[in-house]
Amino acid sequence: MIVDRLNGWARKLPVWCVYTVYLLPMPYFFYLGLTGGLGAEPIKALEHEYGEIALQLVIIGLAITPLRRFTGINLIKFRRAIGLVTFAYVLAHLLVWLVLDVQILSQIWADILKRTYITVGMAAFVLMLPLALTSNNWAVRRMGANWRTLHKLTYGAAILGGAHFIWLVKGIQIEPLAYMAVILLLLGLRLIPKRQNRKSVAA
């Protein structure tokens, strides 16, 4: 009943709502940074805001498949939008780091090579590039079965993103560990064998 009603609403809700709701905070936080709303160190604050929203979107994106499988709630039509918006936040996070935070080209390169959490973060970004580039109907048609295989890179990018956050903080902090735990849980749910598959193998 509830599932049917939710699915009914999801069918009616246009995908552009996802883009609107999620892309608005990006300029808003930038505006806050410009006008003193992000505190005494707005560069780091903006970097963290974008990074954290990206991680939340990673979790939302990873939740869509298990949500359909275990509850029947179908949000698959929003998945591409969630993925692309995630990429937009990762890109914004990276640009704040490059342009506003580190600023110095030689230091940027040294940081990518020398600092594990930055290496890991850059690796996550690189994994996301082909995902973003192939998130369109043309690529889905062209690539056929390969598209699904390629998009399993999402799992790697999600784990690297979570590790990036854990590595970056000092001491033991709950927040990055909680993000990683949820990411691993959502990936772990995918390992549970599907019953009907087993039946069909047996038959």
Partner: peptide
């Protein structure tokens, strides 16, 4: 970076 210089503070 010295804090308090806003979004475009240089290192």
């Amino acid at each position: 970076r010295v804090i308090g210089g806003g979004l475009f503070q240089k290192r």
